[in-house]
Design a protein around this nucleic acid. Sequence first.
DNA 1: TTTGCATCTAAAAGCC
DNA 2: GGCTTTTAGATGCAAA
Lengths: 86, 86, 86, 86
Amino acid sequence: MEASAGIDPTGEVNGGHLRSFIERIERLEEEKRAIADDIKDVYGEAKSTGFDPKIMRKIVSLRRQDKHKRAEEEEILELYMAALGD
Amino acid sequence: MEASAGIDPTGEVNGGHLRSFIERIERLEEEKRAIADDIKDVYGEAKSTGFDPKIMRKIVSLRRQDKHKRAEEEEILELYMAALGD
Amino acid sequence: MEASAGIDPTGEVNGGHLRSFIERIERLEEEKRAIADDIKDVYGEAKSTGFDPKIMRKIVSLRRQDKHKRAEEEEILELYMAALGD
Amino acid sequence: MEASAGIDPTGEVNGGHLRSFIERIERLEEEKRAIADDIKDVYGEAKSTGFDPKIMRKIVSLRRQDKHKRAEEEEILELYMAALGD
DNA sequence: TTTGCATCTAAAAGCC
DNA sequence: GGCTTTTAGATGCAAA
């Protein structure tokens, strides 16, 4: 990275620009936290209606793995195709 | 937790209800992931305009701690107030 | 954890014992590094005989995921069994 | 890399050879994982006898850095020696 | 060189 | 309230 990164010719960092990035990130993180809370609420709600959150988490995890695996299989297929001369 | 959790008197789990919980969670997790990606994008954008993401993360983290600390102090204050008879 | 952790009644840490733990860890880490180097060598060897390391890494990764998934499936099975009253 | 990597003139990948490479890697990765587990165990053991694993990690890390530094200094020394006509 | 990726550590949350 | 599982952050390695 260049030494002048984020620093203008006068040697000052561009505070306003940085602040805007920081604030965008903070807004997004707050949204993320809110969603995480929602997820926790759903687990709580499910638990209070008699489902086991631990099992539910496993189910969610397994389904996520399935999706991920399928995506990777597609990737590797493309790699093979390319290796075979496309 | 009772052994019959999520299982009706006939010994059947309520699949439809469970499915609906799972799907709500999966939707929320997808939103969460999307926001996490957005955050990563912002860091990337900031980096490409010359800011150091590592330093930015530190700033965000410090500001988060500050906020947390302020919230705790307010809690304590309220406890004192309550102890003093409101 | 108690405040006297790793500290004898005279207020001294038990240097000899600590040293022995540290050295065990360092020996193990060295072995680990050696194996990591071996792995790198195998990829290099495979590459020099005409295989694409990138594809190989994907294959290894997919097979690892398979194993992991199977392990989780077994776990969840046990959870189900337990939930059904075992 | 050439497009024909790992592929013989008939357009077939040499499955047997590839499989042997993959299996060698998987065996090595398993060994690596086993050692990583051993390391974790040692930290656990140390913790249960009253040492703080976090501090221990710091010690191990510092000693590793020292070793690197000494190795680098030796390299530089050799360069000097060579420059001086051996 | 730089980006992305995978590993590993440090912190947080949930559960018992 | 400890303990384990989860998640964020940091570092090191490999591909482009």
